[in-house]
């Protein structure tokens, strides 16, 4: 192998930056979507209605036992055919690769967010819930105005840690040739056969970003108001 050639990095920076932006966009939207869906799932799991609890926990356990790559493949290749079969339209219903990736991540990550949020809800003392009930709030109102705000406060560090995992998971769009940060780097790496430079750089950037955020999370955890 010839010596390390930094120039290939320099020239490909704009393209890599576009890839990184896509990774961050995916992470952010999937986080928002995942937390929203995860909250509903968690509320369903704690709703006290047996069938709803069962269904929600089936969903969570199912997505926690299959690989993310499998979810991506299902969405990418097969769901359009399934939808077509269900709606009996002439053409397969298409969702583009970007939407596919996004929906897969939301479906998959909401199972993980659900478990975090469930623990958060359970950490709120039951007196709060009873008090809210006594005030005449219904289940959704109790959650919305009393339980969730407190739960989110305690869960914030864990939610952020899960988001770091999500950010790392977005690199798996590589399998459907997505141009995220890793995808952009590998396209250049393979075209110019500059694997060493590109993959080392990618690892370094992922490390720095994830490390900084995880250090931030640690500081957050040490703030008195976040101590559980």
């Amino acid at each position: 192998m010839e010596s390390f050639d930094g120039s290939v990095l320099w020239f490909s920076l704009p393209y890599l930056w576009k890839g990184l932006q896509y990774s961050l966009f995916l992470t952010f939207t999937a986080m928002v979507g995942g937390i929203i869906c995860g909250s509903f799932l968690a509320m369903a799991r704690l709703s006290g209605i047996r069938i709803i609890e069962r269904l929600a926990s089936l969903y969570v356990n199912f997505f926690r036992s299959i690989p993310l790559i499998l979810v991506i493949f299902w969405l990418y290749f097969l769901v359009p055919l399934l939808l077509q079969g269900m709606t009996k339209t002439e053409q397969p219903i298409t969702i583009g690769p970007d939407q596919t990736a996004l929906i897969s991540f939301i479906l998959f990550e909401s199972a993980y967010y659900c478990e975090i949020i469930r623990a958060g809800i359970q950490s709120v003392p039951s007196g709060q819930r009873n008090a809210a009930k006594a005030l005449g709030l219904n289940y959704l109102q109790q959650m919305r105005y009393v339980i969730m705000p407190q739960a989110f406060h305690t869960m914030l560090p864990v939610l952020l840690t899960q988001t770091i995992v999500l950010f790392q998971d977005t690199s798996l769009v590589y399998v459907i040739s997505g141009t995220d940060f890793l995808g952009a780097a590998s396209k250049i790496a393979q075209r110019d056969s500059r694997l060493v430079e590109m993959y080392t750089f990618v690892a370094l950037v992922y490390f720095i970003l994830c490390y900084l955020v995880s250090q931030g999370v640690k500081r957050l955890q040490h703030q008195p108001s976040f101590k559980v």
């Binding site: 990418y76 219903i93 298409t94």
Partner: peptide, 15 residues
């Protein structure tokens, strides 16, 4: 973007 693996499923599924 397609690869040798993905081109036929993606055509069949209408992407």
């Amino acid at each position: 973007p397609v690869t040798s693996q993905t081109r036929i499923p993606l055509m069949a599924s209408g992407v």
